[in-house]
Nucleic acid binder design. Structure first.
Lengths: 217, 217
DNA sequence: AGTTAATGGTGGTCTGACCACTAGATTCGG
DNA sequence: CCGAATCTAGTGGTCAGACCACCATTAACT
């Protein structure tokens, strides 16, 4: 049958220490499975959208129980690397950092959910993206930016403006972190900037002056 | 017996659509279990080191199969929230994101785009905590800080130094974010600062000069 | 030809069983 | 009486088999 060409090299001969140690001791099976699946993905050069073998197939290929396969797949799903559709199968998925950020934050915020922390983190991200954007925007982008300057202290406009900045700077990780925090601060009292603040921000952006930008915070 | 005071409210009576839908459709059982376990932890105020009920206990309490319990626990383990010891049980754990980080990094080695993003985010956090620390440290803390200045470009010392800063500033959210990112950059080539950099950073801290601090980046 | 019914494959879940391991109770020997 | 060896109950780790709900395809029927 030769079903094991790239096969699992761990076999648990547990009798009296006779144990073919391809794996470090105490390594759980699902961790080994994870390695093998990764190897499979790389070997077959699977890309987002491609279909993975079924759980039963993997189970037979790797010679481990289906539950172990499932635990490994669950890990990959948590990481946002695969997607499972009941009745269809398991598919590769484009890696999206926000998945990870959201997941993390969900638990991070259990211990640390003081308002001040969230606001500080949010402000930090906004400051950072402004600094990163300095000198990076074309005249067209600057014009767009000017149009987005809020006339009133409107939180929606604020959201739009910074979303635009994050997107144009091609930094999805920072964007997702910021968006997530915004999701929380939205309910509570949020920091609001004055109209003047936005104007000065825009001036600093035009003049490409980091000092002026920093002085805003 | 009254075993279900805070109990799971989903019960899958699958006969002919008689199904008490407390959960949104298509939610997987293990996701519901995750919520319940989280609620249990908060309700019982479990802290790092405390023991959780056994898998079989949870299975009976929540009226779901043990495998579903295990999938939820596996997720918590990946997130670094719990620790399982064979023959002993499942225990709470101080949050350490490195597990998930290690897993993820195995799958993202080749994505340079992601790598750059992570480094940028890391640097942003380090800059921020330095700024936040200015003027907040006592003379004793400054002395400690001075002792921690790395003589060589040592990544371990770097880690210690910033961990100290994050902790002293009582900003666990930023600390967690930073630690998480460090987990990634640890494996790959990391940004390193020169000895001189650390000295100037210390000088800026003493002089309480934001400008000097900013100029480091 | 177009609609409907049957089929096989898939992930999702539950059950029961066995293993290796640990800690505490029990027993034994001094 | 006390220390050491042993037994035991409970735990996580794993597997196998079974069922379910779901989906896509195919086969059958009108």
């Amino acid at each position: 049958m030769e079903k094991g060409l790239w096969l699992f090299s761990l076999n648990f001969v547990t009798m009296k220490g006779v144990c073919s140690m391809t794996h470090t001791l105490d390594e759980k099976v699902y961790e080994g499975v994870l390695e093998q699946i990764k190897a499979y993905i790389e070997d077959k050069k699977l890309e987002p959208g491609d279909k993975l073998p079924s759980e039963r197939m993997f189970s037979e290929l790797l010679q481990v129980g289906r539950s172990s396969i499932r635990e490994a797949l669950r890990a990959l799903e948590l990481l946002g690397l695969i997607e499972t559709r009941r009745g269809e199968g398991t598919f590769m998925r484009a890696y999206r950092p926000y998945h990870m950020v959201g997941l993390l934050s969900k638990f991070l915020l259990n211990n640390t959910r003081t308002r001040e922390e969230l606001l500080a983190a949010k402000q930090m991200l906004e400051k950072e993206i402004l600094i990163l954007s300095i000198g990076q925007l074309s005249s067209e982008q600057l014009a767009k930016l000017q149009l987005m300057l809020p006339e009133a202290c409107n939180s929606e406009d604020h959201l739009k403006l910074f979303t635009y900045l994050f997107e144009e700077s091609h930094h999805p990780l920072l964007l997702s972190m910021w968006q997530f925090i915004c999701g929380f601060t939205h309910t509570v009292h949020d920091i609001t900037y004055s109209d003047d603040w936005y104007r000065r921000m825009y001036q600093a952006m035009i003049k490409q002056s980091k000092e002026q930008m920093y002085s805003l915070f």
